[in-house]
Amino acid sequence: MSVLVFVESAEGKIKKTSLEAVAYGAKMSDEVVVVAFGNVASDELESTGKYGANKVLHISDDSYNDGVIQAYATAIAQAMDQSGADALVMANSSLGTPVAARVAIKKGAGLVTNVSDLPDTSNGFEVKKSIYTGKAFATVKVDKAIKVLAIKKNAVELVEGSGSAAVEAFSPNAQDGDFATKITATKKAEGDVLLPEAEIVVSGGRGLKGPENWGMIEDLAKTLGAATGCSKPVSDMDWRPHHEHVGQTGVKVAPNLYIAVGISGAIQHLAGVNSSKNIVVINKDPEAPFFKAADYGIVGDAFEVLPKLTEAIKALK
């Protein structure tokens, strides 16, 4: 098997979830080629070799700086042809998943998204995926010769090795309609830790009483190097932007540590956090259902507990 890995970058850095995709590819095969788009420095691209990539196909044409779904799908399918790949791996993301769908059709491939574990090839090609928004798993058998997998965060352990990948320029042949959608503007929270990628997340709910009290959440998040999140009511009331909404219909997170403050733990919120490795719940209501899903809990007033917690962590560092 020969694997192509589509990696995404932000501000010139390859995303950690994409490096996990490279590591996943390296567990599937010794032949791992990366395809990368946009303005990423050669040494950054070469560093994918530390996770098992042999070669990088770099598409540096400016028209690919924005993640245009159709254009990326065409280019990736051509990169698969170029590298002779019979499998494509990428991180499950707002770009990766829609692109994977189109590539799968182009290549007549079997596609599995939300993949949570390495494939089992002892009897065909079986792979486990998260379903029911993290409440269960399904093992599926891929029916096609070509496989496309979009993997969840933490599907594979990221261990840094010592290799270096050879970088080659790659120029895809854009097809009619590839740029039919035009990205006219991109708005991004600058400098913050991205929620879907974060190792630590601090989330606030209605218990915070109003957007003016978010300073406490931000202080704790800053101290921990964490991303900030919120519950659905909080984003519905416009206390926080929608891209911070963690839950069933919002962002699904999978950090090492999730700290929920003043969130009762409705089942729809839990659906967004159930892949977290450790959950801390701080709530003044001892009956809050979130405690049942937590590893550590404090019954107490967020306005008293949070500043103390931030101070205690600062003292540690």
């Binding site: 269960a136 399904a138 599926v140 801390v280 405690f291 590893d295 809990g297 404090i298 507990v305 917690l309």
Partner: peptide, 28 residues
């Protein structure tokens, strides 16, 4: 594109450890 083999429930979660609100240091 793919066929179901079987479903599986995630492993059960251990019990929550409760920490006194006056002892935040213990949580840390």
């Amino acid at each position: 594109g793919a066929t179901l083999v079987n479903f599986e429930m995630p492993p059960a979660k251990g019990a929550v450890k409760m920490i006194d609100a006056d002892n935040v240091g213990e949580l840390v």
